[in-house]
């Protein structure tokens, strides 16, 4: 079974006091599908996933993008630099 590790930062990491989550999936996922699985397995992330985007190998991806388990995947919530 594919297993994804998703890096967390900022408020999302603080919400569940973890800097990454591991998500099991029946098959390879798109970004949107992975977000759904994240909400199911970590409901506290719901508010962050709503406005958040996934980055794969340090670049934002669109929802339909299929993500490989070897990719570096991160949840980028609303940022607040500057």
């Amino acid at each position: 079974m594919p297993q994804y590790t998703i890096l967390l930062f900022g408020p999302a990491a603080a919400a569940i006091t973890m800097d990454r989550v591991v998500i099991q999936s029946a098959e390879l996922c798109s970004a949107d599908q992975l977000k759904v699985l994240m909400i199911q397995q970590f409901p506290a992330l719901d508010v962050y996933l709503d406005a958040g985007r996934l980055a794969v190998n340090q670049s934002f991806v669109i929802g339909e993008t299929i993500i490989s388990t070897s990719d570096e995947t991160a949840l980028i919530t609303m940022v607040s630099g500057g």
């Binding site: 930062f9 408020p11 940022v79 607040s80 630099g81 500057g82």
Partner: peptide
């Protein structure tokens, strides 16, 4: 753009 797309967070 910085406040929209650069993954930096303040607390």
């Amino acid at each position: 753009r910085l406040k929209q797309d650069v993954p930096i967070w303040k607390s």
